[in-house]
């Protein structure tokens, strides 16, 4: 039972960093990776490949799925010499970002790297994404309508 929980927790953590990294702008990933410093030997197992994912919508937003249109996606896979396999899937055509994401993913599964990666790469990028989201939301909030209600006079 506790084993399942820890597997789930590990999977959730991996899901989180892969998602944060994929949604970050390519130049930001590049910058934080450059600043991270030396990392162990690794080989690119799957060279970056650009392809398509069919984005599914749902009828009326909540009903049966339908194919809404495709998007470009880049993927890559990296293996550390110690055996950990990392993958990167990122929206758009970003070969370099896909390899960096795969390398971070592999490294985050190796002993002793996860905390530094979280502190120096994943958490700051997640914070930046939050800030971008807040900026957009606060511009939208300024356009929210305040209705003036005019009370009708009695008898008219």
């Amino acid at each position: 039972m506790s084993f399942t929980t820890s597997v789930d927790a590990a999977q959730e953590r991996r899901q989180r960093w892969l998602s944060v990294l994929a949604k970050s702008p390519a130049d930001r990933i590049d910058a934080v990776w450059q600043a991270f410093g030396p990392v162990p030997e690794h080989t690119v197992l799957r060279r970056p490949e650009i392809g398509l994912v069919m984005v599914q919508g749902r009828i009326s937003g909540t009903g049966a799925p339908f194919p809404a249109g495709e998007m470009t996606v880049t993927r890559a896979a990296v293996r550390l010499c110690s055996g950990e396999l990392g993958i990167g899937y990122v929206g758009g055509r970003h070969p370099r970002q896909a390899v960096i994401v795969a390398t971070i993913d592999a490294l985050a599964q190796a002993d002793g790297w996860q905390q530094r990666l979280e502190e120096e790469i994943v958490a700051p990028l997640a914070e930046e994404a939050g800030a971008r989201r807040r900026r957009r939301a606060s511009a939208a909030a300024a356009t929210k309508v305040d209705f003036f209600t005019v009370a009708r006079e009695a008898g008219t």
Binding site: E49, I50, G51, L52, V53, M54, V55, Q56, G57, R58, G61, T62, P65, P67, A68, E70, M71, T72, V73, R75, Y89, R133, R136, A137, A139, A140, T143, F147
Partner: peptide
Amino acid sequence: RTTLPRFGDSLPLDTRRMAAERRISSTFK
């Protein structure tokens, strides 16, 4: 797009989770 391989289908979009920049209804004020 015809030159690219298809990696697969996404999960259906959940537009309830949209960070909406615009949202209007003409049925309810």
